[in-house]
Design a binder for these strands. Structure first.
Lengths: 220, 220
DNA sequence: GGATGTGAAGTATTTCACAGCC
DNA sequence: GGCTGTGAAATACTTCACATCC
């Protein structure tokens, strides 16, 4: 009899992607509660802050373990620590920004990444006029240095901010260099193998998904 | 005989939100196909470009009508037109940007909104040093002008790019002025009444939802 | 008393599969 | 023959409700 094919088996793979996507929100709220000095929080209280049901929070957490105390709730510090551990947010992730145009510069200057565990450690551009410039404390490197830098600086994540018609090739290039997670700002959905994760930041799609609800009928 | 109470009745309210959120992607692909001169497209072909199943596309479209021809597929131009009509994208939407800091400036300079039906027609800031400056061809206005401008310029959508701790109050203010759709760039989820739509752009949450998959186990 | 953790129930969403039409 | 449109089936996700424990 043939062995089973290599199906998902470990517990951690059982958590639906939609659940994993909510965990960072829990982390954010818990961080704030911790700063405010809160010791304990219930699923009820978390749910109010996040506008989700307490049952959903308890169910989400139950995919990963039992973190609460019956009758009490969750220790803010303990739950925060465990969630960070589960998400891999206990240490910093080194991130490369590819594409140093207007958008890339805004991303490099954005102060919101490093407080949350992401260090922008390298910037790349293919334009020779941009290469060598210093942007937000980083020297812009040529694309040819990508492979080397990814390895030397242990870069696991890239933020892709290149023109739309270059995006797929840049993504392919990053995958070749071993980058397995990317944040893409171009208005396309790059194709990657299943083992690579991509999230797209696409404000136009977000806007267009709201106009439906602003429109009273079918007439344009 | 009394009229029906004002319960949801029209067909358009039956479409799940998740379906509405996919329509803009269909619009985008169809626009590209149209530019390339394609006449007809099948759900199979659309599915390949979008990485979704053909059945899902057909089912999604079926919430809004019957746009295809059996044995042939969909007329690119016709389907594109109908989807734009359904989403309210046949004419321009006037958009205000609130908050003209680094991020607000990047948004005002981003050329990707107007080709897709959104005109940035006003910019607001509360900082007196910023008010009066010209950014991307717009004079930055003081917040006190918000109400007036929203009415005069028929602004239905706002992009909110103010500091996190000002965001909720700015959102409230916009709701008071009659703005019913917003794109928020601060890392919080503003609370609004059900009739107001908000989408959040939050790259940090996106990054944090990927690190889970980069982490081999529970150890940090 | 109060809150968790979780099977079971209930919804929502996706996919199947095929009749019907071009 | 090919492809849509759609009920039905399958799957995924959320909520309920309560045994269990602090």
């Amino acid at each position: 009899m043939l062995p089973e094919p290599s199906a998902p088996r470990e517990d951690r793979y059982e958590a639906p992607e939609v659940v994993v996507a909510r965990l960072p929100q829990y982390v954010r709220i818990l961080s704030r509660l911790q700063q405010e000095g809160a010791q304990v929080v219930s699923s009820q209280q978390l749910g109010e802050k996040l506008q989700v049901t307490p049952a959903q929070i308890r169910k989400d957490l139950s995919y990963f373990g039992r973190f609460g105390k019956q009758g009490r709730g969750y220790s803010v510090t303990h739950l925060l620590g465990r969630l960070k551990q589960i998400l891999g947010l206990n240490s910093y992730w080194n991130v490369a920004v590819v594409g140093v145009g207007r958008l890339g510069r805004a991303i490099l200057s954005y102060p919101g990444f490093s407080p949350d565990g992401f260090r922008l450690v390298a910037a790349f551009d293919e334009n020779p006029e941009v290469v060598g410039q210093e942007v937000a404390g980083l020297e812009v490197l040529p694309m040819i240095r990508l492979n080397q830098e990814v390895r030397e600086r242990n870069i696991a994540i890239a933020i892709v901010a290149v023109p739309t018609d270059h995006t797929q090739q840049v993504v392919d290039r990053l995958v070749e260099c071993g980058v397995r997670a990317m944040l893409n700002y171009a208005p396309i959905t790059p194709q990657v193998t299943e083992s690579v994760k991509i999230r797209n930041i696409d404000p136009v799609l977000s806007l267009q998904s709201m106009t439906y609800y602003l429109t009273d009928g079918f007439e344009g």
